[in-house]
Amino acid sequence: MQVHSKQRLPWLTLAVIGLAMVVSVVPVLSRWLVFDRAAIIGGQWWRLITGNWVHFSADHLLADAVAVGMAGALIERREGMRVFWLYAAAAAGVGLAVFFLAPTVVQYGGLSGVACGAFGYLALSEIKRSSVRRWTPALVLVLLVAKVGWEYATGRALFVNTNDSMMVLPLAHAAGLLSGFGYWAVLIVRRWADAPITEKGDVRWETTKRCVSQIGGAGTMPAP
């Protein structure tokens, strides 16, 4: 994984958080960007993605901004502007999941799904990268998956109070997390496919052989 040490500030992540703040203080923007089922059906499809940037209270914005800021900044420091695709994938994944899998939800808003995507991606990247302290990201990821899974299965948030007109949607967190995992998987496959053929042989083939041997078929595959 490439470290962009020259890049001091995570500009894209700051822009993501800044946009959420601007949307929160300009009610007209909130009205035009919020995930609104009737409007989406009426053709305003951008709301599927932009709904992630709309927040309904200051607490809501603060928690989501902190989460995206932490996870996003670390990923951006390492991967640079490529983090844009992670944000895009998570935002689209959350929007589509809410639209198709939660048909009773009239309005949705919040960056927490995107934050979960960044969280999941960061944890997987750390597990793969770090050889010494692998157990820390692994444990964190297991706990997060267990929490999100429990919330999704029961349909209610564990530690957040809801009221009659507003509720936390665990589906959004699950969809965001899965988008992060999916993005990580796509990058792994791409790296595998783009791996160069070196003097030592085809790295892709070596990698495949190692994976198969880990599964249990060691030594059964002849070299091409």
Binding site: D64, A67, Y108, G109, G113, A157, F159, M166, L169, A172
Partner: peptide, 9 residues
């Protein structure tokens, strides 16, 4: 659900 939010605890 009138308004669903993604809020982190």
């Amino acid at each position: 659900d009138l308004k669903a939010v993604g809020e982190l605890d």
